[in-house]
Design a binder for these strands. Structure first.
Lengths: 254, 254
DNA sequence: TCACAGTCGCGCAAAGTCGCTCACTCGCGC
DNA sequence: GCGCGAGTGAGCGACTTTGCGCGACTGTGA
């Protein structure tokens, strides 16, 4: 990536987060810590940020992204998102489901040379100013409360797409491996997504076992990879493994 | 390709992307990196762009056609938008083109019991939290600088819609009534819009006569209503009237 | 005060980019 | 046809940037 681009992105990151350690800056910019340090020095000398021992602080006012506090198991979701981001390869076309877990994933995808297609309006907000990411919005009716697009337009858009990877969220996973959702209107969209991707990755934190939900999205046989965390019900995970699903269990440190 | 042409295209690319590495510039211009570098040097010396190691940055704040043009002839645009809003009836399905004029119209449509379909991301921002307006986004690739959606997804979404009214913006109207636009990728979208609406309303402030633009969107016969203001070229307006267009001329007080 | 873990700064090798030169093509006038 | 000049693409040495290792430094807790 161009240094100029990196600098911009660094400042944007800092505006969002307020404070960041060098290690995370390096990781999220996809460069070594040495380079991250050099960038920090440059921008520090230019007065665009304040350098502190071990990282940097935003000089410009921090703009808090909307309802971040509304997310309950944020740490878990972040961990899953980091793991999911590692699955993504440069050049991929990635399809992101609605929900907050996939939003966390989007935040990990900044600066990647990929195409992101989504009906998740929070993901749009997150990635719209990223110069590297090509962003595609599916059509559909806006549902402000769920920050999503739904309807036959969404489904027909999906019919025109084929993604390398789909990252699917869920409201609950039953012991027999059924993947659920709470809102009926989202179901056909999710099912259309399943048909528009080569690989399907399900993101589900421990609290999604069994979680809630009334409508069945799919079964374990439709999933290729399940990313979850330690505390998840082992019996359910076994069901997924039996169905040939690659199960990745993340350890989340408190 | 002629060098002059290439330079123009390079600047346009840069305006859209903000930052670009030499490799991508060369590729998208269809020349070798050596030539791309020479072009960058020329334009850098002429002060048209800022050269950075490995690429180039658009001169000064990335030209946001929006932010700037939005304040240009704002009073005119507001007047046209008010008039246009009066055309809209409750229950209508309204299709809004990209651009700043239609954004002004969106501002006038708050609280109306209507459905708004658009590829204009500024309109989405404006109306997303409005409880009365049902908002439908067309799909497509996000172009952050123009705050629009483009591509075959946008066109195919339009194929699934039929609106009561289309409100069309333009970059210029020729004396013979041809309606123009500057950016090629938007043209098929606008044309698809023309085919998806019962009534077509063109919004064009005085400065759009003749304005700018290289690509033809449509002719006067495709327009049902033209909303413009006093200062517009009367000969051009006559052409529209002859073609059976209802021409509404707004008086704007300074 | 001291130990220790984490962070920083510097030198070095590798990779990428730049600027220069040179050969080639094309259009133009003689 | 032939030379001329402008523009382009390729090769090559010089330079810049990057990532890594190592020793010096800073902050924290005993």
């Amino acid at each position: 990536m161009l240094r100029e681009n990196r600098h911009r992105q660094l400042l944007r990151l800092l505006r969002e987060e307020g404070v960041l350690p060098v290690g995370q800056i390096a990781e999220r910019l996809g460069v070594s810590e040495a380079t991250a340090r050099r960038d920090l020095d440059d921008l520090g000398k230019a007065g665009r940020l304040t350098r502190v021992y071990g990282g940097a602080v935003a000089r410009e006012p921090v703009e808090r992204p909307f309802a971040e506090e509304a997310v309950d198991d944020l740490a878990d979701k972040e961990a899953l998102a980091r793991r999911a981001a590692a699955e993504v390869e440069d050049g991929d076309v990635v399809l992101l489901d609605i929900g907050t877990t996939t939003l966390q994933l989007a935040r990990q995808l900044h600066g990647r040379k990929i195409t992101v297609a989504t009906s998740n309006l929070a993901v749009y907000e997150e990635l719209k100013d990223d110069a590297e990411v090509t962003l595609v919005l599916l059509g559909g009716q806006v549902r402000p409360n769920y920050r999503s697009l739904v309807g036959h337009l969404t489904e027909s858009s999906l019919g025109q797409l084929y993604a390398d990877r789909l990252f699917l969220g869920t409201s609950g996973v039953l012991p027999d491996g059924r993947v659920l959702d709470t809102t009926d209107v989202e179901v056909p969209v999710k099912q259309a997504m399943l048909n528009s991707a080569r690989q399907v990755v399900l993101l589900a934190t421990a609290r999604k076992f069994p979680g809630t939900g009334t409508a069945r999205i799919c079964g374990p046989q439709d999933i290729d990879v399940l990313i979850t965390n330690q505390a998840s019900d082992p019996d359910t995970l076994a069901v997924f493994r039996e169905a040939g699903v690659e199960v990745a269990v993340e350890v989340v440190q408190a």
